[in-house]
């Protein structure tokens, strides 16, 4: 084992992983984190704790992750390159590991222009790929990026994101290969709606042998409404929502659109369970944490394995 992560144990044992997400609050409200954590307990193997997502200031990811641990969840500490330089990142990584965090996800971060401090200086001292490699160097070689020795290296399970849909599609799998070479132990993809493209991307990843070197968790987001689907299709960069998904939601009976959203998500999860090269699903039920038990139940991913 490379780390002390429960997710790593589950994946190593060959189980189909199921992970969730929790966004920290816009305030020092620990109770809010505990409330959001409750429906996730026992229903997911790990929960991503987002880091100032959409460039809005929120409770620090590591802090919300510690609250999640207190509630009995295994957190995936997200870190974006937008807000910290390499000194702050390495310091936070050591602190997070020292306090019991075992997984992290290395991301670029949405541009600060989108958030509530649009004129902030974006740091981007290193990029997400370099962050992956830095954490790997810290863990496996026991060295800081600057080359000095670390007394107790952080044994973290290293995650990275991948977007299978962005243009040019040809480049996507090569970028994945680059992240794997940089040291990504697992990958969580962008929300998948275009299954046709996803199948092709995974096929290429399998052909290149990448799924032997990293675990790919497919991103699934249940649509709550037609409006949400249309918004994601047209306004969220990097998102690929085919018309047929919108049409299916529109075809749902009155008051049953959200239910249809969950049904589509469950069908996807079912297919991912069978798809060669996919090691699990990362469920991003955005501000819908309380629906996770129902989704897990309907997707037949319960009970979660105990390792």
């Amino acid at each position: 084992m490379k780390s002390e992560s429960k997710l790593e144990k589950i994946l190593e044992a060959g189980h189909f992983a199921f992970t969730g997400e929790l966004g920290p609050p816009r305030g020092a409200n620990a109770e809010h984190v505990r409330e959001k954590a409750k429906p996730l307990i026992g229903n997911v193997d790990m929960v991503n704790i987002t880091d100032n997502q959409t460039a809005m200031v929120r409770m620090a990811s590591w802090a919300a992750a510690l609250i999640a641990i207190e509630e009995g969840l295994e957190p995936n500490y997200q870190m974006v390159c937008r807000d910290r330089n390499r000194l702050a990142m390495q310091a936070d990584i050591l602190g997070a590991y020292a306090l019991g965090i075992k997984n992290m996800l290395c991301l670029s971060g949405d541009h600060q222009k989108f958030g509530d401090h649009p004129t902030a200086k974006g740091v981007f001292d290193i990029d997400s790929m370099q962050l992956v490699n830095m954490v790997k160097t810290m863990r496996d070689e026991g060295k800081f990026l600057g080359g000095a020795d670390i007394d107790i290296p952080p044994k973290l399970f290293i995650g990275a994101a991948a977007n299978p849909f962005a243009e040019p599609f040809e480049w996507r799998v090569h970028r994945l290969a680059k992240k794997v070479a940089a040291g990504a132990d697992f990958i969580q993809t962008q929300c998948v709606f275009n299954m046709k493209k996803m199948r092709e991307w995974i096929r290429r990843a399998v052909d290149m042998g990448l799924t032997e070197k990293t675990y790919i968790l497919a991103g699934v987001t249940p649509m709550k409404s037609v409006g949400m689907a249309k918004y994601m299709a047209s306004k969220v960069p990097g998102m690929d929502v085919p018309d047929e998904v919108i049409k299916r939601l529109q075809g749902a009976e009155k008051g049953k659109v959200a239910d249809m959203g969950i049904e589509i998500a469950c069908e996807q999860i079912q297919e991912f369970k069978e798809m060669k090269g996919v090691a699990g699903v990362h469920l991003m039920a955005i501000e819908w944490e309380h629906k996770v038990p129902e989704i897990a139940e309907r997707a037949k991913v319960l009970p979660r394995p105990v390792v």
């Binding site: 949405d110 974006g122 997400s128 962005a166 243009e167 990097g238």
Partner: peptide, 17 residues
């Protein structure tokens, strides 16, 4: 974002997020 190993996930049909 000044990335050396781009693009990021925000690349949008040839445009920046």
């Amino acid at each position: 974002k000044g990335l050396y190993n781009g693009p990021c996930g925000g690349t949008n049909k040839g445009n920046c997020e």
